[in-house]
């Protein structure tokens, strides 16, 4: 197993620990989106703690902000803050690590928590780059359930209207949302065709938990000129923990001690 993939599993291990200690967290989506965040932060984006306020840094918005748990693990691993603070205080009384993204945390670019906001905010960031002649790119990560929010489609229109080829949206398409399979709750498919019909370049990633496939997609997105790119990443909710995989019950779940120990064992076996 390559180092980047190993890192994905180490990040999963951190998330599991924080969520177990907090007895709260959107663990299923954390585990599906982690490879996307790992690839973006460690291979694709021009970001680092030293560049946290550099006007030319790439911008990132986690629109499915309930997976802040996962973003915190990635940012902590990158050195934006002491990861132990996250691991021990996540969602605890008076913690700054609340259950959704907020800019009080170093490295977080925009507050989140209500779905259907991130893509439009990302349009504004990408538009500002065009206005200022800056080369930074803006990345937004959405959920497939989130794509039921109508505001996303307003943002999709505007991104195409302004030819925002510096904007890249990723849908973490894990096929599940809190009430059940997305196709049964409110079918947002076919997402690739929807983006394409709005004038976007669309890249389907067959295994959105495969770092190499994701890297290839993001490199392809960078090369696309004249329109924004949507990466439709087909992922597995709960990926990496056998009893959580594709199990809707783990959208937001509290682990027993035994479950936690099993999860840790499974994850550690992947990178040790």
């Amino acid at each position: 197993m390559d180092e980047l993939t190993k890192k994905s599993y180490k990040l999963r291990r951190s998330v599991i620990e924080a969520v177990y200690r907090a007895s709260s967290g959107h663990i299923g989506g954390d585990l599906s989106v982690v490879d996307i965040l790992n690839v973006l932060y460690n291979r694709i984006m021009n970001v680092s703690p030293e560049k946290a306020h550099d006007p030319d840094r790439d911008r990132f918005i986690l629109s499915k902000a309930h997976c802040a748990d996962c973003l915190y693990a990635v940012l902590g691993d990158k050195g934006y803050f002491d990861i132990n603070e996250y691991l021990t205080t996540f969602e605890k009384f008076q913690s700054r690590f609340i259950g959704h993204t907020n800019t009080a945390i170093e490295g977080v670019e925009m507050n989140g928590g209500s779905l259907g906001h991130g893509l439009a905010v990302g349009v504004g960031m990408a538009l500002a780059a065009k206005m200022d002649g800056r080369a930074y790119r803006t990345y937004v990560v959405l959920g497939d359930g989130e794509m039921a929010e109508g505001s996303n489609y307003e943002a999709m229109m505007a991104a195409a209207q302004y030819s925002l080829d510096n904007l890249c949206a990723t849908v973490d398409l894990n096929g599940l949302q809190i009430s059940g399979p997305t196709k049964d709750v409110m079918n947002t498919a076919p997402l690739g065709e929807k983006f394409a019909s709005f004038g976007w370049n669309v890249i389907e990633v067959q295994d959105g938990n495969d770092c190499d496939q994701l890297i290839a997609a993001y490199e392809q997105a960078k090369a696309c000129k004249g329109k924004p790119t949507a990466v439709i990443a087909h992922t597995v909710k709960g990926k990496g923990v056998s009893f959580m995989e594709n199990n809707v019950k783990w959208h937001h779940g509290v682990m027993t001690k035994e479950q936690y120990e099993t999860a840790v064992k499974e994850l550690e076996a992947r990178y040790e």
Partner: peptide, 9 residues
């Protein structure tokens, strides 16, 4: 939202 994104930059 777009206005907020612009303002953040």
């Amino acid at each position: 939202s777009v206005s907020a994104g612009l303002a953040s930059c």
